[in-house]
Design a binder for these strands. Sequence first.
DNA 1: GAGCACTGC
Length: 725
Amino acid sequence: MTNNNNNIPVNEMHWPQVDKADKKKPKIRDLPYCQGNRKQRLEQQRKALPIASVEKRLVEEVQKNDTLIIVGETGSGKTTQLPQFLLNGGFCHDGKIIGITQPRRVAAVTVAKRVAEECGVELGQKVGYSIRFEDVTSSSTRIKYMTDGLLLREALLDPFLSRYSVIIVDEAHERTIHTDVLLGLLKNVQNARSRSINKCLNIENMEANHGKLLKRENNANSVSILKRCQGVKFPSLKLIIMSASLDARGFSEYFGGARSVYIQGRQFPVDIFYTHHAEPDYVDAALITIFQIHLEEGPGDILVFLTGQEEIESVERLVQERLRQLPEGSQKLLTVPIFSSLPSEQQMKAFMPAPAGFRKVILATNIAETSVTIPGIKYVIDPGVVKARTYNAHTGIESLDIVKTSKSQALQRSGRAGREGPGKCFRLYPESEFGQLADSTEPEIKRCNLSNVILQLKALGVDDVIGFDFLEKPSRMAIVKSLEQLFLLGAITDDSKLSDPIGHQMARLPLDPVYSKALILASQFNCLEEMLIAVAMLSVESIFYTPREKLEEARTAMKCFSSPEGDHITLINVYRASDEFVEKIKQGNDKEKTEKKLRKWCKENFINSRSLRHARDIHSQIRRHAEQMGLCVASCGDDMLQFRRCLAASFFLNAALKQPEGTYRALASGQSVRIHPSSVLFRTKPECIIFNELVQTNHCYIRNITRIDFLWLPELAPQYYAVQN
DNA sequence: GAGCACTGC
């Protein structure tokens, strides 16, 4: 839910480029006038929010209850207002902080900006935010917005979250894996802090356990925390869980029957329409509906939810085909695709108003459900399906399947039509089918690999992961499988404790455990420089962008980087080429210009610049970590054999052998797999390979592949392969 | 011969 985005002009919040363009306008005359006006307008908007009338009551509720569940509908203003109420209500005495977690970075940033403006303070002072790669806080920060994953990381260093007097977990209904783990952790912290008021000694012991990692990494810091604990009582931690789903019972029960309150929202009415019968082909039904709206309904843009890039591109073509058959006066319909891997400049088109007289039809994946808010939408077409990732703990295979949406998802989608005025939503299925949908989407923690979560919990001192008090427990099988994997990677000992030093080092790195292990091994293989790049590139969404209409051009561009050994070295080549380019242009250009030129370079080489920038950020972060841990950052130079041997040693669980018919057999699972067409080895098909990703779509595909020698496996991973051979 | 969406001191 994005009530937090409310009232913030979209082109200002998601597309800073638009902002920059604005700044170029002469500002001498209009800026002071706008400022004064804006401040008044902000104050008026604040007062008009539904939550404004219950400020006093909310503060009292928080004073009376250690845990409070707040159900707030879209547009209630809970995300921006509650922290301000609590600050004014005296919850930040003796320098304590109010922390508010969000599942998404963009939300943390935009809400913090908004609240700083409402408070009339500079961002990063009293009001700030902290997300990965960006910490805009200071010692005077009292209201801190952050991502939930970041707070989890913070808990590794400060197990009692001692800087916080209040933690607000926002958008809890989304049930991301981070939110779920955080809730469990917060429950523990809250109990421990309450107990600490009487039993400080006990906490010292716990702190000693939790602080193992701390001591190793930062001796001085750890000692000071232990000292501080002596005789000091932790004040109780106020916990507020905010959810937009109407059923707060689950949260309330989990927190021992915690009190829940409800705040009304502010949305325009949306009329819901259903089909009479089930539609056999939702794409066709969507097409018909698009034209029905276009020809029969009043002005306003249309948002269509589709399942993926391919479907979006095909609907786009079909709309244009049918449009040509209409009389000229009815052809003023503009199609705009939006999905996450689309380059930002093209995503921006969805936010620009259609030319005069034109109607815009936005063809979107569920990126438009929560992540971005597109203005001007009056009509929503919802086929009721979504592409979802599921994980099978038995086979370890992830798959992307098209499944039915949940009721809450359908509600969220229709809500997109009522943000600026009354709207209409066309659900492409009968009303009876709506009743049969699941109430909400299955929480992420029940459908993904848990290795990372378990490693984090162990590092936080939770040794009995199976007994951990989860809001909803993942299956025992999923936990056991992940424990097994962590054991095989050497992260935990055979009595299921975090190993020393490998397990602790792995927990410290913000990476998938198997990548963390690869870094540790690479320092022994003298190729950590190469592995840091490979791991950074593997950690982001696909680096190459190949638009259908320029397929051949894109392929030629990719050839410049491709290595016959496989995708890992190809990715390193891309990274190094980009690095060389940046080094070359850095002289004589400021940071902004360099970025701009790099984006141009990316475009010319069919590389997704957003992904590359992300990889470069990750690279510098993990390189810093590696250096701090004392790993040896060396390069193997041209000796890529050494690097490939290290890949084999790191990813031995993902080795595959060619079968006579050209498919592969994954050695660990016996699963038959194929090389994904995006791999540079798609045509070569070497005898023995290692891979990083196994996803089932139309076939079981493996991605990010490198050629290895079969004999390396028993040599480099005898613990796994010696017996079998 | 193909890529839902998020996220990490």
